[in-house]
Design a binder for these strands. Sequence first.
DNA 1: TGGTTAATTAACCGATAGGTAAAATATGGA
DNA 2: TCCATATTTTACCTATCGGTTAATTAACCA
Lengths: 122, 122
Amino acid sequence: MDQDKLSLTFSALGDPTRRAILVRLSMGEASVSELAKPFMKEMSAPAITKHLKVLEKAGLITKSREAQWRQCKINGEPLREVSDWIEHYRVFWEESFDRLDEYLKTMTTKTTKKGKKNVRKK
Amino acid sequence: MDQDKLSLTFSALGDPTRRAILVRLSMGEASVSELAKPFMKEMSAPAITKHLKVLEKAGLITKSREAQWRQCKINGEPLREVSDWIEHYRVFWEESFDRLDEYLKTMTTKTTKKGKKNVRKK
DNA sequence: TGGTTAATTAACCGATAGGTAAAATATGGA
DNA sequence: TCCATATTTTACCTATCGGTTAATTAACCA
């Protein structure tokens, strides 16, 4: 039933509330109610609990008990995987710009040189 | 009603079919039916159309008419924005590892200590 | 003109997402 | 022991998601 990890991570990041929570957590650990504070006007505590569950399932945060509070902590690993996925294909989708760029240059200056960098096989 | 751009992009990337389509497009332009080919056993043409609409709305692809075919092309800009968002906070979430690392080091080398950094109030 | 192919739209479906209010649970402290 | 606080669970709601089939639109071609 469950999605692959990358999908879970991307989906978890696809919500502004959850991204804001992560940004907050990137400054340091925080309890659930500390995290909820900025959203209290807009949404209820159970809503935050649900968002945290989504983040937890994606491995983006971990929770630990500390008295009656739950301390939440960011976990960078899934973020690294997202970053890696994007960077892995970056050369390819950046290239389309290079090609367009080169094409435009050829059109305007009529320089038909070959052996340029960034030109991929056909 | 519509979400912010970053949310649209992350959500669009949160589906393995759509990521596969992007990976394919990172190798070069393709028509809808070319893109659909690898998924024909698993899903119908309208399903692909819908996925492409999601990608298009996120600005991840553009479509152009070419005879009876629609050529699809990847657009790197939203990917760059995602990448930038992650990299912008990278220093912070990477830091938690450094801190943990340091904490573990302190714990294993000298175990009593008060006034340690990272020990939070109660 | 009519037929074929490419792609989309329309209408529908079940599952999931994101929210709520109210009740339940867990813990520390008087 | 009882209360207050923090957090989660339950039950519910509506909207969106990801898929379907059937019908529709668009362009080429003979």
